[in-house]
Design a protein around this nucleic acid. Structure first.
Lengths: 207, 207
DNA sequence: GTCTATAGCGAGATAGAC
DNA sequence: GTCTATCTCGCTATAGAC
């Protein structure tokens, strides 16, 4: 019987994998904190490592370089957020209500907002490692919102004087710009209320 | 007669000051280029100096450190732009038409847009050297726009269902967010047309 | 006013012990 | 899987010659 099939070995391996996964999520949390405070470019791996209470070489064992760390963080955050508020079920109403829910959640976590706002702006540069990632994500976000508005339009709940695609562009721009204003004004208005008002300009849905 | 009152000395000094000013504007141009491509944090003084065809220590003679360079650039750009399109004359109509003019100008200079978008996001962090600067600038921009909308409101040219101050917030957020989308979409729509549409949602002015 | 030279630091990444 | 030690690089900033 080969050693790799040994029950104890498999059990030990399972424990190690769980520990490893825990470490990784600690590291991602630390990275989110650091990137949110200083941006991606200005943050050092040593800073992230210190927050995760690990050496910077220990960090590099889990993520081979800085870009890999960023990619893992984006996967975790962006892909996670959409599912969390089930933007993809419940039709047009579900979608726009999900947007308000996200804003309400963001309001309690300014660091999250700063993280995405800063990374987005940095990624605006074509030389940034996450440029392609954000380009794709923004295009997808636009498509999804336009679809949701189309769904509402078919049922007479879209009230804009413009096309649904234009409205989708306006709504996303409003959200993005409002995040910046909210951060710069040090949260002196309600993010959720603001998003609710934005959406009411375009759709006839009880939010 | 003391040497400092000598005519030739004064003339030479005048020439030197003019040359110095030229150098400074070359440096600011180089800084704008570099910051726009890579952001402030990720840009080195050596990079800026190379673009300005000067040594990095030569640069430090004109601007004592990196923050001073940033501050000088912001003063030059932000304070200059408002005057250029005379946002402060011509009342409410003049102001909103000025906003469209700025967008039309920005459309021809994506690097300018990226510069301000990136710096704004970076400055969102309270530890950023330009944090206070952008905070103040955003608050002022909001006040000025709200005043312009008030002026239009008094003459029945404001059409929003919300207050002028809320509308000012929406319009500024739309502009900020649209910049980001425009950069990420690699300019696949017209910035000026978009701003014109935004404004038409709120004011009854021929743009 | 601009340069060369260099100090002094912190970065990303690798090698190899344990 | 985590560490120490180290390599190599590029950075900001200073000193001092010209």
């Amino acid at each position: 019987m080969p050693l790799t099939d040994d029950v104890q070995v498999r059990r030990r391996r399972g424990i190690q994998e769980a520990a490893s996964e825990l470490r990784r999520s600690q590291i991602l949390l630390a990275a989110a904190e650091a990137f949110s405070e200083r941006g991606f470019n200005a943050t050092s791996l040593r800073d992230v490592a210190a927050r995760a209470k690990i050496s910077h070489t220990g960090l590099l064992h889990h993520y081979p370089d800085k870009n890999a760390l960023l990619e893992a963080l984006l996967d975790d955050r962006i892909k996670g957020a959409g599912d969390l508020h089930n933007l993809n079920s419940g039709g047009g109403e579900g979608f726009v209500r999900g947007l308000v829910a996200i804003a309400a959640n963001d309001e309690q976590h300014p660091a999250n907002v700063r993280l995405l706002t800063t990374l987005t702006a940095e990624a605006t540069s074509p030389t940034h490692p996450a440029h392609g990632y954000f380009r794709k994500w923004h295009a997808e976000a636009l498509d999804l919102l336009a679809e949701a508005l189309d769904d509402l339009d078919h049922r007479g709940l879209f009230r804009g004087p413009m096309s649904t695609r234009e409205a989708a562009r306006y709504i996303n721009a409003l959200r993005e710009g409002t995040h910046t204003q909210w951060l710069l004004s040090e949260a002196d208005f309600s993010l959720a209320a603001e998003v609710r008002s934005h959406l009411r300009l375009f759709v006839n849905v009880d939010l």
